[in-house]
Amino acid sequence: MQLITVAGPPSSGKTSVILKLIEAMQIAASDVGVVKFDCLTSFDHLRYEERGIRVETGFSGKLCPDHFFVSNIEAAVEWGQNAGFKYLITESAGLCNRCSPYIHGIMAICVIDNLAGINTPRKIGPMLKMADIVVVTKGDIVSQAEREVFAFNIRQVNTAVQVIFVNGINGQGATILASHAAKARSIQTLRDLKLRFTTPAAVCSYCTGEIRIGNEYQMGTMKRMEFKKP
């Protein structure tokens, strides 16, 4: 089974891109499964089911989405193996800029949209920096010049990356993406593979349910801002 991991900010068009990708790969709906990692609520499974694609959804809830991803990805792969898929695609949403649910040796696709602001690629961090492919959506409604500067800003952060513009509505660009996706590595298990980037350090009192504000309530890993003297 070939595994592809997809991540991106909310509403960047991940689900649309994955659906267009599957279409362009020209494989049967029964040959591919999707695992959606989300935070609190998700409606994306409906769109997969509508096309006869099997999908499992997991909610990180009060946990860090990255921690949630890494502790469930192995079981996701087992699920895919048992279902006899040729391809398993994971979709991670609800991530902070610090997140990067990518694994060494496993194809990593980051989806961001052209409306996100021209400097956004420079701010996203590991999710973009560590990706093999960055898919840019919503390019059909911004100028060519903005698309070019956007791609330039992506390459500044991730020099080795493939930047592919995909229209999530009509599928333009999905054929190019599919030719890359076909090269995704085939795996039996993820055991002992490694994440490309550490997950956020997060063991402080607020992780464990503290809600009060004030020094005396803060314990564990904390980081303080330094404010200049007025």
Partner: peptide
């Protein structure tokens, strides 16, 4: 060559960045 050969222009396209014409052209 994919993605480098073609520039596109359509009725639906807009500038979404808020810059002056000068700053924008310089940036590009």
């Amino acid at each position: 060559l994919q993605g480098r050969l073609v520039a596109q222009l359509s009725q639906n396209m807009n500038f979404v960045i808020d810059l002056t014409v000068n700053d924008f052209l310089k940036m590009h």
